[in-house]
Nucleic acid binder design. Structure first.
Lengths: 227, 227, 227, 227
DNA sequence: AATGAATGAGCCTTCATTCAT
DNA sequence: GATGAATGAAGGCTCATTCAT
């Protein structure tokens, strides 16, 4: 154990508190809509704290996004679901399930929200996030797909990857509007498992990999014994 | 011809110019990021014009979004691609092609951008847009899917619709970040036709509708011979 | 009867309506607190009407004040209560009663209010009002007092006049704050007659004119036998 | 002496300077007529200072009025002229002289002006001022009058108090218009002592308390040996 | 290391006014 | 004679930032 001052484990220090507050508030209101006053109040830090610890608002934002993607990275499939020895098909299914799960109920919702916001309108923080988090994920998926039977050329590999990711992302990027369209209750009826099952089946079938062993258990409801 | 002053047909009046400018600037910078000064400058209208014609910034925003969705509605598949007599399969393909096309190269890019922004974080204008534009589209797609052979229960109908829409939306919602990941040139290589072909094939195959009649004409389209 | 257009007797013309509206609104909100928009709306006149009929806001204000004092002048004691042949004492009592009455319940409350506002902080319209309305009244009172037995020198004549006027004015200038101090109900209990009786008695007694002949006729004046 | 930075005793801090400036400018121009920019310039404080120290213009106004009444309270008769052991007559005379004096030449003219403005059109600050300053004064006067020989009923007590206060207030509330009527020089000829003597004599005589010992010295000019 | 006071640019809005019809 | 559109200045206020401590 490191020697720390007495309160360090209960109350995070000012810098951490600022990052926490910034994450939530930037996630909720966007960069322009958030004010440093609001963030400082939430963080219980003096108004000058942002400039003291981070220089300015923009840099606080960048740091908050960077930290958010690191948090998010821990939920994500690459490390914990990569299962290097497994077949491409198993790894694809793992990828999808991991991604759907982390979209559906991220460990740190505000971190996810903030990251998605930045990705929708990439700014100064986007480069880092893409380099360290998004691109590895995307490349990982592409390599899985590359190994699968219908050996596609590069553009189609790309588009196939997009089709997979798009389905996972949809439930995060378009949840509010989907609730407006179909009603909140219909959307909440779609559990993470149901969505994951659907995306896996839809995708594998689209790739011509789902017929033999899957068409049997389609009837019974869906969430089951593949893997 | 009505007797009008000489410029009336060339220069739209102040209200129109404000809507045009608001559409572009709100689309680029978001509601908070845009300033009415900036909008008035672009519209070549006095700063007080916003208050005069629209009351305040928020109402200008709402009106801009409403008009944007009406513009976008004209590109969209429902009316011009519905082809009421055709088979569900043909109509599904038409829907996808129409949607991909209007995502790829909307007639009014800034209108599309603005609408997507509002849909990402629904505010006061979202209700109208959903009611008049988005929901009819979504219901139309659901009815097409409902008629297709693998007769799905409601939740799966919903998710299947999402899988279709997600693939179309992806190229609009995630283009900037995709360019960061794979490079702009790789993204620009994906033409609207290629994307549409891919999404149609991916989707129909996933629905078990792509094998028999399609493997014949695959040759002439370039992207082919799976499944 | 003059030949007028059909509506002229029911609806006053725009200029009159503007003066009416200006009188009320300037009276309620003051010059700075009132806006020409508000006045035009109340008058049901186009926003440009003020500038068209009166040049600018300030001139509208001046005209409104001038008209207000003319209206008020009609209630006031000089003409209808002067009774040139009567004794100074009777005329003083008449003056006081007339003034108290017109302060208590002016024929046109908003006109009175507006005039008092202008008098509290004299501006461009004050000169005319003083010349045509206030000064004649004040001089009239001074001449009455000059004829009364305790023949005072000029400064004391002035101050005595102020003592009379002050008592009458008080109930108008300080009614709101008096209600705050003593409660609205106690103020409303003070009728115009009671106040007039009191001011007459207080004043005449102060001038040494109230003892001999008044304690006898107290009975006929209505509010009495105090003492 | 405390160790302070060199200017601390010469230049009041920003908050004080703002209150000082607000007092003067609100007194001269009224709430609507004053601008916070003007106040900040006078106070040599940044435009944002008002928001920082007082929240908004309205609260600055309220605070300025509150402070103004506290300043004014120090000149006023209640504490320094109450002379608890003295006879009611002496105390009434003391009250009048104190009030006339503080109306004639208040220690802080702008504070008095501001307070009178607020009392003329009571707003959010009026309640406090009335509670803490005006009402105690008015009640104090009423209690003096209650003890005096012509034992009046409540309404007449009220009106008698108004007659006293009205005479004192007149010279402050109606000085500008009086100068317009009679000329500035005639008004300036009325010194505080002359006015006080007059009001005392007028009032005591009206109450039937001034005859015996006063009618003698009336002739010599007025400002003299009563006590 | 960290703060509370203070800054000045900019925000949206409203103002009285003027213009072209 | 009278109007609706449009103007530019100024309004109060909030912003991110910096300064002196």
């Amino acid at each position: 154990m490191v020697a720390e001052n007495s309160e360090s484990e209960l109350v995070p220090d000012a810098k951490q508190r600022l990052l926490d507050a910034a994450e939530e508030i930037f996630a909720d209101y966007g960069y322009e809509g958030a004010s440093v006053r609001q963030i400082c109040e939430r963080a219980k830090v003096n108004i000058a704290g942002v400039n003291y610890h981070f220089g300015d608002k923009e840099n606080l934002y960048v740091e908050a996004v960077k930290r958010a993607h690191m948090c998010s990275a821990r939920d994500m499939p690459i490390e914990n679901l990569a299962s290097p020895g497994a077949s491409p098909l198993v790894r694809l299914e793992g990828f999808i399930r991991g991604m759907v799960a982390s979209m559906h109920a991220p460990a740190r919702p505000s971190a996810m929200k903030l990251m998605m916001r930045e990705m929708a309108h990439p700014g100064k923080a986007a480069g880092t996030v893409v380099d360290e988090f998004i691109r590895p994920l995307a490349f990982h998926l592409r390599e899985i797909l590359r190994e699968l039977p219908p050996h596609l050329d590069e553009p189609r590999l790309l588009m196939t990857g997009f089709s997979v990711i798009a389905q996972c992302l949809y439930y995060r990027q378009n949840r509010p509007v989907s609730e407006l369209i179909f009603g909140r209750e219909h959307m909440e009826a779609l559990t993470a498992d149901m969505v994951a099952d659907h995306v896996v089946r839809f995708t594998l079938t689209a790739l011509g990999l789902g017929q033999s062993k899957r068409h049997a258990d389609d009837a019974d409801g869906g969430a089951d014994q593949r893997g």
